[in-house]
Structure formats: C-alpha cells, structure tokens
C-alpha cells in the first residue's frame, strides 16, 4: 500500500469513528460530520471565515518569521559562546516558563490592545523554545569540519553558510515545525483576548452561542491550512536539507 493510500485510510477511519459516535450519542454537543460540513459551508460562503482565516494566518506568519529569525540568531550565539550562555541561561529558563497567558496579558496592558502588542506576545512566547533547540544544535557542531574551513582559510561568510549553518538545518526544521503549531495556538488566545477579528475572535463568538459545529468547522479549516503548509513547504524543504545526508551508496 502506498503511503498516500495509508494516510487516506487513516483519515477515513477517523471520520467514520467520529460519525459513529455522533450517531450513538445523538446530542447537539457532538454534531455529526454532516452538520459540521454544513456549518463550514455556511461560514465559508456566507460568514467571515475567509477574512478571519487570512487575518489569523497573516499574524501567524509574521510572528513565525520574527520568532524564527530571533530564535536562530540567539540560539547560535548561546551555542557557540560559553560566556554568553552562562550569562543568559537563567533568563532563558525564566522566559521559557512564563505562562503564555501572562505574556499576552502584560503585552496588552503595557502596549495597548494593538496589533504590534499581539505579535510581540506571540514572539516572546515562541523565541525561547527556538533558542533552546538551536542552541543544542550549535553546541554539537562538528569541530572537524570547522577545522577544514580554518585550514583552507575560508571566509567567515563561506564558513557560516557552507560549513556551520547546514549542520543546524535539522534543528531549524524541527523548531520550525514545532513552532508553527505552537504559534497558531497562541495566536488564537491572543485574538480571543484582545482582537476583534481572526479565528480566535470568531471562536469566542461561536462559543457564546454554543455553536459547536461552527467551532469544529473553524478548527478543520485551520488544520487543513496547516496540512497544506506541511505538504507544500516543509516536506520539500526536508528533502532539500536531507540531500547528501541520507543517500545510499551508489
């Protein structure tokens, strides 16, 4: 069985299990797939779903890019400099353990209910986890390969982009994957607490009407977008990064 069929099969099993339970429970708190689909079509064509999705996605992408760039830079610096690591290690652990909700609330209180405060709250939540992962990668960089660069007197730019950074790609990929899922969850909370658009805001409204089918419809919409991103961006990137590393002997 090809991997594609395997994936489809699992989806079908999940869907039919759900449908079965919905029939058995027979309650408006557990809507069947058809009701969710109906709700999806309604919100998609007649509601604000498209606008809300695009607003949320923009927020996710902006905070994702900022968090990844900052996290990779700080992670590399902490990984290669023992002193910097000792200095900022405690700070990192503190930031890593501040509850997401607290950062969000504080950002809104200090900077107002504005877009930049929302983005900043998400970034502050995400950066430490990227730093932790990249730092591990930078710590175990192969000294032997760096010595090759040193012996052959490669420029700093060449050494960084051709010898140092490629060793971090797997770590960057892992934190990007983990990052995207964490970020969109946090963005929803940020939207729920202090924005008047986006999926988080929409979910809050649906919750107040106990529109469970609507909540599920939104969830599906967003999960499908993440799946598309995974297949269109992350998988091809994976292949690019794995080049030369997972080859079999010719």
């Amino acid at each position: 069985m090809s991997p594609l069929y395997g994936r489809l099969l699992i989806l079908i099993i999940l869907a039919s299990t759900w449908q079965g339970i919905a029939w058995l429970v027979n309650s408006s708190d557990f809507p069947s797939l058809f009701i969710v689909m109906e709700s999806f079509i309604y919100h998609f064509f007649h509601g604000d779903m498209l606008i809300n999705l695009s607003v949320t996605l923009t927020r996710v992408l902006i905070s994702f890019i900022i968090a990844m760039i900052l996290g990779v830079m700080i992670g590399i610096l902490m990984g290669i400099s023992k002193r910097l690591n000792q200095l900022s290690d405690t700070l990192l652990i503190i930031v890593l353990n501040i509850p997401a909700l607290v950062t969000i609330l504080l950002c809104y209180i200090w900077f107002g209910l504005v877009e930049s405060a929302a983005i900043m709250a998400v970034v502050i939540n995400k950066v430490p986890t990227v730093v932790v992962m990249i730092r591990e990668g930078a710590r175990v960089v192969d000294e032997d390969l760096l010595n090759v660069a040193k012996v052959y007197k490669l420029s700093l730019r060449k050494t960084f982009f051709n010898v140092f950074l490629p060793q971090l790609y797997p770590y960057i990929m892992a934190s990007a994957r983990a990052g995207l899922s964490l970020i969109w969850k946090i963005v929803l909370v940020v939207e729920l607490l202090g924005r008047s658009d986006g999926v988080g805001f929409a979910l809050n409204t649906l919750f107040q009407f106990f529109d469970i089918a609507g909540i599920l419809a939104y969830t599906f919409a967003f999960i499908s977008i993440v799946l598309v991103i995974e297949n269109l961006i992350f998988r091809p990137l994976d292949k690019l990064i794995a080049r030369g590393i997972h080859h079999d002997r010719a």
Binding site: K153, L154, I245
Partner: peptide, 27 residues
C-alpha cells in the same frame, strides 16, 4: 604571509551536504 596549504585529514572530512564538485569549489 599566508600561503596555500593543503591538509588531508585522517578522515576525509567532506561536507556531506555538498556534492564532490561543491566540496572542492568550497576551498
């Protein structure tokens, strides 16, 4: 004054993410 130095290490120490051409081009 820096002069060109070649060093063949005990292990080949090639960059796995670069092709043979790119590995030589690198230096």
């Amino acid at each position: 004054k820096a002069f060109p130095l070649g060093y063949v290490f005990q292990q080949p120490r090639l960059m796995p993410w670069l092709t043979v051409n790119e590995n030589i081009q690198l230096v």
